[in-house]
């Protein structure tokens, strides 16, 4: 068997496993955990478009999750707009904001962009916490918004069981992974990587580095906001402290760096490795050892950055390639016999 063929088979098997998982996992708790895992993998993949490819450090992506969640929720609760439409509106709003943040900061040292994203995200949270009504929109300050579980169904993006949510986020994740794959092999992907690594050389080679970063930022913010709508529809309750939180922003960045930023598999891998740590340590140590998972995150992060600066994706990819090569040679030998 050719390595490409093995890769394709592995991908098919993986997809089949992901599709079939809800048939095996019947517990609502575990499905919930899986949905959140994909949710984080999705967010991190979006983050990776700027944080990985463009080589800057966004630390306020929770703001875009919040923009997406609030936009679609306000529109559907107060104006009867379908969450699907609200999702797009939220995404466009987030893209605009992303461009506004990037516009002045992409020309400066990376630290400014990182700080601007944090400040915007924290500023947004404080605003939302302080505003009950904004013109015609009810925001409800720190109490947040509750979505009454009325009519379930695809048009309302609301379901009785967890399975439909599982498949929704799985499709979203697959979509954004495919998009990332296409971008990484396109002119934009090359330009982003080049501009992130050596901006002066990239500029000399015809790349308007600040502009490509803006494109990536707009795309990333747009896609991130879509997940905000998903989160609102999944939990049916959003409030500023939980959704526009620095913890969420940082967790995304941690997952990306530990998994391997700038690679396609890295974010998914990071989520697969880290989400269970935080879920289970919350379940088992939540009362006795609060914050245990954050200590683990911190330690793992420092160790990984020390010994695998490109993230765990690198040694695992190498291992996978070795296995594939073995299979290939073994297959060739069999055929020869």
């Amino acid at each position: 068997m050719k390595p490409e063929k093995i890769n394709r088979i592995a991908l098919v098997l993986l997809s089949a496993a992901a599709l079939g998982l809800p048939l095996v996992v019947r517990s609502a708790t575990y499905l919930h955990i899986l949905v959140l895992l994909y949710f984080y993998a999705y967010l991190t993949t979006c983050w990776n478009l700027v944080g990985g490819f463009a080589g800057v450090l966004p630390l306020g992506h929770a703001a875009f999750v919040g923009i997406g969640a609030y936009t679609s929720t306000i529109l559907s609760l107060q104006y009867g707009v379908s969450p699907w439409l609200g999702m797009i509106v939220g995404g466009l709003l987030a893209a605009g904001v992303g461009i506004l943040i990037g516009l002045p900061t992409f020309k400066l040292r990376g630290a400014y962009f990182a700080l601007a994203t944090i400040a915007f995200s924290e500023g947004l949270r404080v605003m939302v916490e302080n505003i009950d009504r904004l013109g015609p929109f009810t925001i409800n300050g720190p109490r947040g918004l509750q979505i009454p579980p009325l009519d379930t169904g695809l048009t309302n993006f609301m379901f009785a069981g967890k399975e439909p949510y599982y498949y929704s986020i799985l499709v979203m994740l697959a979509g954004v992974l495919f998009l990332t794959y296409r971008i990484s092999r396109s002119k934009l992907g090359y330009a982003l990587n080049a501009g992130g690594e050596e901006p002066e050389a990239a500029m000399a080679l015809g790349i308007d580095v600040a502009r490509t970063k803006l494109i990536a930022m707009a795309l990333s913010s747009f896609l991130t906001a879509l997940a905000g709508t998903f989160y609102a529809q999944f939990t049916l309750y959003i409030h500023p402290k939980s959704i526009i939180s620095l913890d969420l922003s940082f967790e995304i960045a941690f997952i990306a760096l530990i998994g391997g930023r700038g690679s396609i598999a890295g974010p998914v891998l990071g989520a697969l490795l880290l989400r269970p740590v935080s879920d289970f340590s919350r379940i088992y140590f939540g009362d006795t050892l609060p914050g245990m998972h954050l200590i683990i995150f911190g330690v793992v992060l420092i160790l990984v950055m020390n010994f695998q600066p490109r993230g765990l994706q690198e040694p695992l990819t190498r291992l996978y390639q070795k296995v594939v090569n073995r299979l290939f040679h073994w297959g060739a030998l069999e055929a020869a016999r």
Binding site: R185, S186, K187, Y190, A191, N193, A194, L205, G206, I207
Partner: peptide
């Protein structure tokens, strides 16, 4: 290839 993308859009 980064350089070559200055003259083409196709990978």
């Amino acid at each position: 290839m980064v350089g070559a993308f200055a003259v083409t859009d196709k990978t």
